[in-house]
């Protein structure tokens, strides 16, 4: 298990959110969508110009910009197949 910033995650990589380090409106928007500590996420892909990033969260798809993803740290789960 390694902790990385969401921006650094590769496509199809999975993990569990460890901490969201931002308050105010951005913090609220991130949390209300379910991006809170303990939530499992998978990086689904990135937009053609590499930003924003699309995540698979609780059965739905969310997007956020890279500079917004910088506030989210994720515990990476090793690929288990």
């Amino acid at each position: 298990m390694a902790r990385v910033v969401l921006r650094r995650m590769a496509k199809n990589q999975r993990g569990v959110i460890a901490v969201v380090k931002v308050g105010g409106e951005l913090g609220q928007r991130i949390r209300e969508m379910g991006l809170v500590p303990g939530t499992r996420i998978t990086v689904q892909g990135r937009a053609p110009l590499n930003d924003p990033v699309a995540l698979r969260v609780m059965g739905g798809t969310l997007t956020l910009r890279n500079n917004e993803a910088d506030y989210i740290e994720v515990e990476i789960q090793e690929e288990q197949r």
Binding site: E25, R29, T61, L62, T63, L64, R65, E68
Partner: peptide, 10 residues
């Protein structure tokens, strides 16, 4: 900028 935290609906 307003955050881009947004859903891609089915």
């Amino acid at each position: 900028s307003t955050p881009f935290v947004m859903e891609l609906p089915p």
